[in-house]
């Protein structure tokens, strides 16, 4: 059990008579890079909100980092990291202040923060920029810093919601390098993306259509079962079946 970081069984969320997430069941292993794909409105965000302890499921079961989503959602929040394209860092705090702020929220000690800040800054080649406002950094650096901040408290699992949207192709690849390193260190990565080439970088990929998980396999396995040459083609074949429209 210890190496399953997410276990979801028939997890469901209804808003009134609308079933946003329709009995999804899947497991994510420790250290895995798990791609969570789906068209707009397929239910990805709702599912992620339930798994990160922000939204109560209507029915079904799930544990995240070993904690129950109904009863232990506060513990889930402490044991995960989260980063999205839209919200990541405070622009008018410095690099160092952002790190201290987030690490402090997660209850990390001053000595832990001090030591780890230096090593993170070195890895990102940001030592010279530590006391500059985040606002002054190029977008690519901000995104890489935001990721490091999201895993600074060494969570078991990190949710990345479209982390590379709008980022240039070189930085996008540097960002994926950070993801690989995090996964190699044992952090499980749960990532959404609209870039289909990035789906290839995941160990396994699930594709949601109309609130259900319609496919889940390795990228190679998905291409074989859908008789497709690329993940783009797999995605189009599945997403075109969708009945409901985006929200």
């Amino acid at each position: 059990m210890a190496d399953k970081v997410i276990i979801a069984e028939k997890l469901t969320k209804r808003f009134g008579d609308f079933t946003a997430v329709d009995a999804i069941s899947f497991e994510v292993n420790r250290g895995e890079i798990f791609g969570f794909l789906g068209a707009n409105g397929a239910g990805k965000t709702t599912a992620m909100r339930m798994l990160s302890g922000l939204s109560m499921p209507t029915s079904g079961k799930a544990t995240v980092a070993g904690f129950d989503v109904y009863r232990e959602n506060e513990k889930i929040k402490r044991n995960i990291g989260y980063m999205s394209q839209k919200f990541s860092l405070y622009e008018d705090l410095t690099v160092r202040e952002n790190i201290r702020f987030y690490a402090g929220i997660y209850g990390k000690s001053s000595s832990f923060i001090r030591e780890k800040t230096n090593s993170v800054l070195q890895e990102l080649h940001l030592t010279g920029e530590a006391d500059k406002l985040v606002r002054s950094l190029p977008l690519g650096w901000k995104q890489k810093l935001a990721f490091s901040v999201a895993i600074f408290h060494e969570p078991r699992l990190v949710f990345l919601d479209e982390p590379t949207g709008g980022v240039d192709p070189v930085t996008r690849r540097e960002f994926w390098n950070l993801i690989y390193e995090a996964a190699a260190s044992g952090i499980t990565v749960f990532v959404t993306t609209h870039y289909m080439d990035e789906a290839e970088y995941c160990n396994r990929v699930s594709i949601m259509v109309d609130g259900r998980i319609d496919a889940l396999d390795t990228p190679g396995g998905l291409k074989r079962s859908f008789n497709a040459v690329s993940m783009d083609e797999v995605f189009l074949k599945l997403a075109r079946k969708a009945v409901r429209t985006a929200d």
């Binding site: 068209a39 707009n40 479209e162 949207g165 709008g166 609209h194 995605f235 997403a239």
Partner: peptide, 10 residues
């Protein structure tokens, strides 16, 4: 098309 899925983009 930013943030729009592959099908809607096409």
């Amino acid at each position: 098309t930013t943030g729009v899925d592959a099908v809607s983009r096409k």
